[in-house]
């Protein structure tokens, strides 16, 4: 029997108190305990990027982060990206405009990664975008449109 722990998470500006098994990842806490299913589970072993969220403003993989590790640190998920009125984040709008997806499963991770990539200043050229977005796989192969969307959003942000 595992002893459950009680932790307080800061998710998209809301405080959430959870009692859970210490093995629960941030990804499973979001999806299974908080009903925030926008963050996707792809490989669950840090190889695909579908579970990308921001912790302390930095893009990380929620499948390789324990929920307990994130306690006390602000977490932003795809659900927290749009404006309070529901207006799309510029990166979300650019993905729509450029049709930067096919099945859409990797898209929340791509968008969270792209927002950080632009903020880090690593979206200066197509080559740089490809390198710094390499941690997000798209099995449909929508990469050319993803690069175009990130480039446009980066140009708008600068």
């Amino acid at each position: 029997m595992t002893t459950e722990i009680t932790i307080e998470l800061d998710i998209n500006g809301r405080s959430e108190t959870l009692t859970l098994d210490p093995r629960v990842t941030l990804l499973d806490a979001l999806r299974e305990h908080l009903g925030l299913t926008g963050t996707k589970k792809g490989c669950d072993q840090g190889q695909c990027g579908a579970c990308t969220v921001h912790v302390d403003g930095a893009r990380v993989l929620s499948c390789l982060t324990l929920a307990a590790q994130a306690a006390g640190r602000p977490v932003t998920t795809i659900e927290g990206l749009s404006a309070p009125g529901g207006e799309l984040h510029p990166v979300q709008a650019a993905f729509l405009e450029h049709d930067a997806f096919q099945c859409g499963y990797c898209t929340p991770g791509q968008i969270m990664s792209a927002v950080a990539c632009i903020r880090e200043g690593h979206a200066g050229s197509d080559e740089e975008i490809r390198e710094y977005m390499a941690g997000n796989l798209c099995r449909c192969g929508a990469y050319p449109h993803i690069v175009a969307a990130v480039r446009q959003a980066a140009e708008m942000a600068s």
């Binding site: 840090g46 990027g49 990308t52 930095a58 893009r59 990380v60 993989l61 390789l64 982060t65 990664s113 950080a116 990539c117 880090e120 690593h122 710094y132 977005m133 390499a134 941690g135 997000n136």
Partner: peptide, 9 residues
């Protein structure tokens, strides 16, 4: 090494 996400972790 790795990816941007892993390097942040």
């Amino acid at each position: 090494a790795a990816s941007a996400q892993l390097r942040n972790m």
